[in-house]
Simulated scan of single mutants.
Amino acid sequence: MQQTRGQGAPGADSPWNEIVPNLWMGGHFYQDAAGRLPAIVDGEFDVVVSLHHQDGYGPAPHVEHHYARIPDGPLAPDEIAEVSRLAAVTAAAVTAERRVLVRCHFGYNRSGLVVAQALITMGHDTDDAISLIRRRRSEWALHNHLFVAYLGNGLTR
């Protein structure tokens, strides 16, 4: 399976970024001038959607947490269904004005796929959702061209 995580992409310069009100996108790691740092979540968010697991990286026990193991590469039909489900959970929580973080390893591709689909569910068109994510998180967000194609073709089709 082809993985795109880290292929030439620098680490994000913050643990997470707000994409639209109440919706943040991030990773388990970010990077500052001194090097790679852990992005540990405590109770800052009402809902956390994790697409990568790292012991000790939160969230706090009282936080609603959704986890799915999703590769940063081609997705099987059940994985596409899980991405769609998590995007629906994310969109519903944001619409209910809950603070939501969607995160993966670096906060670029898998989290970008879920966040973009959530934005599409909330009424954004595909190109606008992708552009917004790249402006707010990083120009490296959604550099997995396969994920961009999934979004363009519609995850639920």
Rank of each mutant, 00 (worst) to 15 (best):
P61W: 07
P61E: 15
V63P: 12
H65N: 13
H65E: 12
H65P: 02
H65W: 15
H66L: 14
H66E: 11
Y67L: 03
A68S: 14
A68R: 15
I70D: 01
I70A: 08
P71L: 05
P71M: 07
P71C: 06
D72R: 04
G73A: 13
G73F: 05
P74R: 14
L75F: 00
A76F: 15
A76W: 13
A76C: 07
P77R: 09
P77H: 09
D78S: 14
E79M: 02
I80P: 00
A81E: 05
E82F: 00
E82Q: 01
R85S: 06
L86K: 02
A88W: 06
V89H: 04
V89A: 09
T90L: 02
T90S: 09
A91M: 08
A92Q: 13
A92R: 11
A92P: 03
A92E: 15
A93M: 13
T95R: 15
T95V: 14
A96G: 10
A96D: 15
E97A: 11
R98T: 08
R99A: 13
R99E: 09
R99L: 12
V100L: 08
V100W: 14
V100N: 08
L101G: 10
V102C: 12
V102W: 10
V102D: 03
V102K: 10
C104S: 15
H105L: 15
H105S: 14
F106I: 07
G107S: 07
G107L: 14
G107T: 12
G107H: 10
Y108P: 13
Y108C: 09
Y108F: 15
R110E: 05
S111H: 05
L113H: 01
L113N: 00
V114T: 10
V114C: 04
V115Q: 02
A116T: 03
Q117K: 05
A118R: 03
A118T: 10
I120S: 05
G123T: 08
H124N: 09
D125C: 09
D127W: 02
D127K: 11
D128N: 04
A129C: 05
I130K: 07
S131N: 12
S131H: 12
L132W: 01
L132A: 02
I133G: 05
I133M: 02
I133W: 03
I133D: 10
R135V: 10
